[in-house]
């Protein structure tokens, strides 16, 4: 056997060596770029673990000589936001109180709208949907003041309800698009069969459509949780001082602090604020990507 094999010429494409010059250049560029993108995260973490004297030496890239968690404790419990010195903890809980209901309400409303748009078209439904999509391009500043007046009329301005309402309204375009496209890709026969069997609007939604759409619900929830957590403008305008979300409090801690600037506390506070979206992002990975890609690339 071996002698026969030895006489046969090798065939097929020549196996490419792994380290061709082109590959090395490609990997080189990608790795350098990746290091650049990682750099701020690294700086954030190392700075937050240093003491102030070590920071004043002035090497921002040096790893901490003496690891201290004091800045983290201070950022969480006693950093000053300009008015009070309770740290970021109240802001964290405010953000939780804003993000949870806003996400649930906006995802539910958008899911039902997307379902109505696909399966229960009414006169002008496509017109309203187009308006909704175009509306997502209107700068928030244009609609901000009238929204303040509306929430004031509803007697909810300066409360968590106002923020929840605003997030639901402005989350509608992208989420409705997401759900509409997903429901449209499901086989219509399912809907028709359920309809023939006498199921109504809500029954079809809850017992057939929703259970089949868990992936898109996950995408929508990821999109909303990160988006709402990261919001600054609506929080600062609608929430009222005692309900300021974490982003607003973080900005106040860092930018309106008086006296000695504690860079390590600032960075610890920044990581704490970034933690929720970062965890969501690293855990969900592909689904996060799917969410932002689905909103932009149709079909």
């Amino acid at each position: 056997m071996a002698s026969i094999a030895a006489t046969i010429e090798p065939f097929g494409p020549r196996p490419r060596p792994f380290f061709t010059p082109t590959r090395i250049i490609i990997y080189g560029i990608i790795i350098v770029a990746a290091l650049y993108y990682m750099l701020p995260l690294y700086v954030m973490i190392t700075t937050s673990l240093k003491g102030l004297p070590e920071i004043r030496v002035g090497n921002i890239f040096a790893p901490p000589l003496e690891v201290t968690f004091e800045p983290w404790v201070k950022a969480w419990t006693s950093a000053c936001t300009g008015l009070t010195c309770n740290g970021l903890a109240p802001g964290f809980w405010n953000s939780v109180k804003i993000t949870l209901p806003s996400t649930i309400v906006s995802v539910f409303v958008a899911a039902v709208s997307g379902y109505a748009l696909v399966n229960w078209r009414f006169k002008g439904s496509e017109f309203f949907f187009t308006c909704l999509l175009l509306g997502s391009f209107i700068p928030y500043q244009v609609m901000l003041y009238p929204m303040v007046m509306i929430t004031a009329q509803l007697k909810i301005f300066g409360t968590l309800w106002a923020v929840i309402l605003v997030h639901t309204v402005f989350g509608m375009p992208i989420l409705t698009l997401l759900f509409r496209n997903y429901f449209a890709s499901l086989p219509q026969e399912l809907f028709k069969a359920a309809r023939v069997d006498g199921a109504g609007f809500w029954r079809i939604f809850f017992q057939i459509m929703a259970p089949m759409s868990l992936p898109i619900f996950a995408v929508a929830i990821i999109l909303q949780v990160t988006g709402i957590w990261n919001d600054f403008l609506f929080g600062v305008v609608f929430a009222g001082t005692q309900n300021y979300p974490m982003t607003v409090q973080l900005n106040n801690i860092v930018n309106s602090a008086q006296g000695v600037r504690e860079y390590n506390v600032n960075m610890a506070a920044t990581i704490l604020t970034a933690a929720v979206p970062l965890i969501v992002y690293f855990v969900s990975g592909k689904w996060f990507v799917r969410g932002i890609a689905a909103g932009a690339v149709k079909g």
Binding site: I30, A34, Y37, P40, V43, T247, L250, A274, L278, V289
Partner: peptide, 25 residues
């Protein structure tokens, strides 16, 4: 996917966080 995760993670952060980190750097 590892590299993609690295290039995309800043997008998951808020403008406030981004601004403060670079302000420090």
């Amino acid at each position: 996917s590892g590299f993609r995760t690295i290039f995309l993670y800043p997008f998951a952060l808020s403008g406030i966080v981004t601004g403060l980190v670079w302000q420090w750097i």
